[in-house]
Design a protein around this nucleic acid. Sequence first.
DNA 1: TGCCCGCGGGG
DNA 2: GTGTACGCGGGCA
Length: 813
Amino acid sequence: MVTVQFYPVDATYQVVNGKPQVYLFGRTVSGEQVCVIDPAVEPYFYVIPKNGEDPTNDLLKMRKEERGEHYRIVRVEPVQKKYLEQPVHALKVFTNIPQAVAELKDDVRALPSVQSTHEADILFVRRYFIDKGITPFTLVTAEGEPVAEQLRVPAIRAKKIEQAGEDTFAKPKVLALDIETYNPAGKHVVAEQHPILMIALAGDDFKKVLTWKRFETAEPYVEFLPSEADVLDRFKELIAEYRPDIITGYYSDGFDLPYIRVRATKNRIPLDIGLDYSELRVTGRGNTKAQVTGIAHVDVLRVIRKFFAKTMETDIFTLDAVAGELLGKGKHPVDINKLAGAWDQNDAALLNEFAAYNLQDALLTYELAQLVLPNLIEFVKIVGQLPFDINRMGFSQLVEWYAMRQAFALNEIAPNKPGYQAQMRRRSDRLKGGLVYEPKPGLYTDVAVCDFRSLYPSIIASHNVSPGMRNCTCCDAPQIHTDRGTFWFCQKRKGFVSGIIEDLITRRARIKDILKKGNTDPLLLARSQALKDLANSFYGYLGFAMARWYTIECAESTTAWGRQYILDVIERARKEGHHIVYSDTDSVFLTLADQSTDARAFVERVNRDLPGLMELDFEGYYPAGIFVSVKASEAGAKKKYALLNPKGQLKIVGFETVRRNWSPIAKDTQRKVLEILLTERKPEHALTFLKSIIDDLKQNKFPLAAVIIHTQLSKELSEYENTGPHVAAAQRMQELGQTVGPGTQIRYVVTKGKGRIRDKVKLPEEANQDEYDPDYYIYNQILPGVERIFDVFGINVNDYFTEKAQSNLSKFF
DNA sequence: TGCCCGCGGGG
DNA sequence: GTGTACGCGGGCA
């Protein structure tokens, strides 16, 4: 008998001799990889019988045989559970193998004595982690005998296995990968046709670029192999030698690994990199996933989009942009479009550049992984599922699997996912959202901003908003009136959903206390963020059509209370003489009655009257803010404003500044105009600036780069029904012998002349600076971006800058 | 206003 | 794999 302490990293299950067993792959505390096999697992699901009936005997008779596989129910246990927070008598129905659950559940549901079946669609490994109370990436103790298995790591057959505390696997071995492929002239990538030219790997003190064309190089990391097939073989070998816990890439679910998968098949190379010698599996269409048994494949892009996107400046998520913002460095500067040519001509100097480029991508990915893994791992620990799954779950799934684990702990049976019909019905349920106050367009100074701390979670916790607590007959709880009716929630019992959220809020508060005392552990910070994200996602989950715990009345009550609380704040502020500038859902923007009043004191007074965990925060003073009107109307635009913070930074909300198909000059001008207005507060300065831009445009003073419009082709040229400007540009590229197709980047400028815009389109390399059309850029790019902003000051830029209105202009200046 | 389509990331 | 689980924004009617 041996004892191992290890951190589970990945898991799978197998049926051996008609019995299922779970394989947990991980690393021991002493740093060895290990597989712990747990045979003590029983597949099951729940049955709720019809009132007073007992289907047990019918259930035990049930069996099915298909494709040589026997499916049967082996045992039935009566259990006292809860369903939607009400006590229920249920049966726990055990089957011989996991597949039997799926095979038999429909027949079971069809029995006349059966009301419903539950939890019959929970993947076996996920069920395992929930029922055993084992958390991936967290220390587990197992006792058992070593056994010989066809695995890349030693195996132990467990007699006993249990969670050994909260100790986290903080230093997993990470291997980042990146590939370069052969792509003739900017064409959409086609894995079936074009080989992989290079594979880069980066790990801890490890870097390598594999390639199959020999060229002169001084770089020790470049390794030459005779063919693409040999590169793939060597790639497998290096993974086996490095023994990573995590393999990672940037968009490796959607590109690198699926591409490697196709090329390996093409070259007849088995990709048996799994720790059980199973092949790399690529599943899904459109949104593909790549999975390796025993190793956690983490797509860094997914982690960043899910957990970092909201707080990031960039709204494009290319490796270059993301690494630039998070690591302060970018990709190796070389034009990727030249790779195929360099490869064909065996251009050693360029190929060296591309090897460096390839390696740099892998290194950036490795460093990004180190940076973002704490956030992924904290979610793994909180939700209790595998990193591979957590990496690919959306927030609704994270909420749901967290709830599933809590349901098990609290003896609740999980509701079923809705069928197609129910989903459609739910989708048509319209939900009234947050209150948005229409701002009066204008430039405001000294704006105080207050917002509710986690408004919806705190409402749900404070009012016990939970599916089974609604309109109880036992107490006189506060009521909320909604378009769906009047609701209240029991004050005597704690609800399932509300209890979970209260727990999340209080856990986070404890962590924030520790952080406030000067602890800067990145895992704690990540944990606090994860708890907050999870709590904030619950409200959306309650109104999400696919959710098991979908309860529109709860979602409706939550927003109704939200509107009530924010309205209370607005009215109270008004009574105290403050002016309301704007409000959206959980925040209020106000200008104070007089400068000596303190917004903090106001916030404190509000807080004295708030129930439970609800709290209004003073967010800060902003020296200036601008609110604009809706197109062609006097009304203030909602969710569209710009603020200047005390540090002099601009916070721009809702302006379409960053659309890719805007020229740089249009984006820059809009931003600069807002900046001048907010910092100098003199519209005439902004107008002077605008005039200077327009004058310079008219004289073609800006370099061509400022007026290039970027866009992308989405389909084959022949499939376009209308020739838009970008299609005209693509046609020209084709005339010049370039291959264009779906995915091709199109860059063009609009030049002078009469007629349709598409007839005036030129490629940047064929246009001169003096050729671009000032009128197009003034009237189609610059003015639309600043029109609403100048409206605020009664300035109609179109009047000022159209030719017939030149007299107006001279009047102004 | 609502529906459909296609992108995103990658070379 | 106890499957068949994206989400948003632009373009168009």
